[in-house]
Amino acid sequence: MTFAVVFFAVAFLAFIGALTLVFHRHPVIAVLGMAAATVSIGVLYVMLHVPFLGLFQMIVYAGAVMVIALYVIMALGPEESGPQVGTVQTVLTYAASLLFLLQLYRVLIKSEIGPMPAVDEAFGSIQAFGGALVSRYAVPFELASLLLLGAMVGAVVLSRRQWQ
């Protein structure tokens, strides 16, 4: 019961945060909305029995990504910009989104959905996770490290002020 109450509270918060991101005209408040959404989603991860991913979520998204985004917005001077692309595109977007949502809804009510099965305590433990990363998922892990190296060098290359 408490679980359900917490779930709905957190889900509500995530949803409000997402709406704030998309519809609030002030960019700083929009980013804070996104931060709220990511923290709530992190709580959901904890509730899904993968606590350390919830922690990562808060560190990586709510921490790193949001801080970088805020930094750029503040460095630029926050200018107001709401959802305002052009009427045609806005109408099309809403129509497409509504259709997409209806489609998702149709699919989900037709799905065979059961309650979450019980899992033992070891599920989602950091030991099991680390083991999977260095054994079964060793190759993707190495590929990800290459990708992060590329991102690091790329960020330097793209933003250094003068060349040579």
Binding site: F15, A18, V22, S81, Q84, V85, F100, L108, I113
Partner: peptide, 27 residues
């Protein structure tokens, strides 16, 4: 009782909200 359906519904709402944002915001 929270089922997998609850999570999927929440995720679809978030996805669609993100979709709207990606297509309509200017910044």
């Amino acid at each position: 009782m929270i089922t997998i359906g609850h999570y999927l519904v929440l995720a679809s709402f978030l996805f669609v909200v993100g979709l709207i944002g990606a297509l309509t915001r200017k910044s």
